[in-house]
Design a protein around this nucleic acid. Structure first.
Length: 537
DNA sequence: ACCTTAATAT
DNA sequence: TATATTAAGG
């Protein structure tokens, strides 16, 4: 309540006016701190005991932005009580006690920082950082009312800054921003003695939240970008911040960071992207709020304007979406714009997809052909079909080759897409053969699949080709299982049909090996073919 | 207008 | 290394 919208919009000198709850039983100490804070334009509300302070909080939620609480030997419990109760309020503990345990306890209980007294200006000046931090990072769990406005305010503020910077000369910008950004780190540190402000983000979930660094990165990134490029056309980009990996990763591999961007290119796309939410594709549930793993950190707040495009982090989830989209579309239809549509990941641009697509395709082509040769030395001229009857399948000589993707099963949407009628190659180019079924990429579905998700051949069918699968069709099921395990339940519907279709096709191909596959139709996966063959034999 | 590819930049 | 950007060509 304290912060009304109007107030915010008027909140020009941001840190000024922040409401500080000061809890200190020592009146003189309280008075001293208060005066210092006020000198810095903070608005201070002093309380002599935790109960008063707590009732003030409960009576008027949102009345305070940050709390400064004294921990004394005489009443440390009161302080702890406050700390534990006022979870929504970034609370900074202050004390003459230098006991490490006490400090740790405070932090453990949720204090955002522990400041040793005496509190000189340098230690107090930037307590607003905790407010901002919370505003930006507490989103997932709790975002008290008073925080949101701050967040918005900060965002717009930063944006403003950026715009200004754009017009000014770079050096200035950088400096300014840099200093701004850095304040958060540097200044805090000194305050707490050697430790940077412990940002105890108690609410951090799986590890991906941006920490201090986050905001900073945000800013810095923007800056860099800005200075470095002339935005040609107005591109507005959304940035998500990639957080410093070290910070998070506790146990996670680096890939959870997700960054996305938005690009409004004039020319480009029709795909508008809005970015707000970029979620990660996790399918589990949804696209929107989802979850967890990767999540959204950030989001750009409303107004547009962050500039900088960040790299998209093709997390396994995202990649999976991509692959699924590609599969759904079918080879010849898998073009950036469509894939983008299917992916439904806002914040991705056509360019991003195109780039990824390019990589996706390239990964296989160079290698596969060689392997083909290796395996089928005779090449297309010869017919060794007796052994590898499906070779003919490769309607597209240069590439084609699913063969080493044993797992693969199938294109989920196979029949569905309806493109299997002879097709049309929209893009005059001879389309390459179908890409490997997406599933391949997921061969490590359970473990955290990862970077290497790119199709490394999973194991060529050298010896028993279908070693992995039981003779029939299991491939599909595997695929489906894998998919679901990865979180994308989506294609369940087509599994059945796909299998039938595939079997049909396989038979057809076997019977008429000389016929190329209809354009537009993806060849059956190697596995399927092999499986079928073995079954027939 | 969009796609693909290759080369190159970040 | 992964991704973005660019340039050239369809």
């Amino acid at each position: 309540m304290v912060c009304t919208t109007d107030e915010l919009s008027a909140w020009k000198d941001f840190p000024k006016g922040l409401r500080v709850l000061l809890l200190d039983e020592d009146n003189s100490s309280a008075a001293e701190i208060k005066s210092k804070l006020e000198a810095m334009d903070y608005i201070v509300y002093t309380f002599c005991n935790e109960n008063e302070a707590l009732s003030a909080i409960s009576n008027e939620p949102g009345s305070f932005h940050v709390a400064l609480v004294e921990v004394s030997t005489s009443n440390s419990n009161g302080s702890f009580k406050f700390l534990e109760t006022a979870k929504d309020l970034p609370t900074i503990m202050t004390s003459n006690i230098h006991c490490l345990n006490t400090m740790m306890k405070c932090i453990a209980l949720g204090a955002v920082e522990f400041l040793r007294k005496p509190l000189f200006e340098d230690k107090l000046r930037n307590i607003w950082q905790h407010v901002v931090h919370k505003a930006f990072n507490a989103g997932r769990s709790v975002q008290s009312e008073s925080l949101k406005p701050i967040k918005d305010s900060i965002v717009s503020m930063l944006e403003l800054k950026m715009e200004i910077e754009e017009n000014e000369d770079e050096n200035m910008e950088k400096t300014e921003n840099a200093s701004l950004a850095q304040e958060s780190n540097e200044q805090e540190s000194p305050a707490s003695d050697e430790h940077p402000a412990p940002s105890t983000r108690q609410f951090k979930q799986v590890g991906q939240l941006p920490d201090d660094g986050d905001c900073q990165d945000h800013i810095n990134c923007s800056i860099e970008k800005v200075s470095g490029e002339q935005e040609r056309e107005s591109k507005s980009v959304e940035t998500t911040c990639a957080m410093s990996q070290e910070t998070l990763q506790a146990g996670h591999p680096p890939c959870f960071i997700e960054t996305v961007i938005e690009d409004t290119d004039d020319l480009t796309d029709g795909v508008k992207s809005e970015n707000n939410t970029h979620h990660n594709p996790q399918n589990k549930d949804s696209l929107n709020h989802s979850n967890d793993v990767v999540s959204d950190l950030h989001t750009s707040y409303g107004t547009r304007a962050n500039r900088k495009k960040m790299k998209v982090d093709w997390t396994p989830e995202l990649h999976k979406k991509f692959v699924q989209a590609v599969d759904k579309l079918g080879v010849d239809q898998a073009i950036p714009s469509r894939v983008l549509e299917l992916m439904k990941v806002e914040s991705l641009t056509r360019h991003n997809v195109a780039s990824h697509l390019q990589k996706y395709r390239m990964r296989r082509r160079p290698i596969l052909p060689k392997e083909d040769d290796r395996r089928w030395p005779h090449h297309r001229d010869q017919v060794h079909r007796s052994y590898y009857p499906y070779k003919p399948i490769m309607a597209y000589p240069p590439y084609h080759s699913n063969h080493d993707l044993p797992t693969s099963p199938v294109y989920p949407m196979w029949g569905a897409a309806g493109s299997h009628t002879a097709g049309v190659h929209m893009w005059g180019t001879p389309s390459y053969p179908p890409w490997p079924p997406a599933e391949i990429w997921h061969r490590k579905p359970y473990s955290g699949m990862h970077a290497d998700a790119w199709g490394c051949p999973v194991m060529p069918p050298l010896h028993g080709p279908f070693s992995s699968f039981p003779p029939n069709a299991s491939g599909f099921q595997c695929a489906s299982m894998i998919d679901s395990s990865c979180g994308m339940p989506q294609n369940s519907f087509d599994l059945q049909p796909a299998e039938e279709v595939i079997n049909t096709v396989v038979k057809e191909v076997i019977n008429k090996p000389w016929l190329p596959l209809p354009l537009g139709l993806k060849p059956p996966s190697t596995d399927s073919v092999l499986a079928e063959l073995s079954r027939l034999r």
